[in-house]
């Protein structure tokens, strides 16, 4: 999982298993002198799963937020060709 703001990576996390489900958590860093393009109130954060855009959310550090990725968006699914 990668969090990106205006093309800059500002956070990343690993998918893990908890209670029989696949889950993730990550921090999206605030803007600093080193990373001026990172989190600031109102900036749009893109969450990517395996480099595929999953969802967007406005940066807000007043509470921990739950965001379920939109699964399947952008995925290309290959099906086997079945011929008689």
């Amino acid at each position: 999982m990668v969090a990106r703001i205006a093309g800059q990576v500002c956070g990343q996390g690993q998918v893990q298993q908890a209670d029989g489900q696949l889950v993730y958590s990550l921090n999206v860093r605030a803007a600093t002198a080193v990373e001026p393009g990172c989190g600031m109130a109102g900036r749009q954060v893109e969450l990517l799963v395996a480099d595929v855009l999953s969802t967007r959310v406005a940066w807000d550090n007043r509470a921990i937020q739950r965001r379920d990725p939109v699964v399947g968006t952008g995925y290309r699914v290959f099906l086997p060709l079945v011929r008689r």
Binding site: V15, L26, G39, N61, I64, V71
Partner: peptide, 16 residues
Amino acid sequence: RQRPTTAWYRVGPVSR
């Protein structure tokens, strides 16, 4: 000296 970042999390499958 900087305020904390925000965490996102989800519960559920990530991929099919």
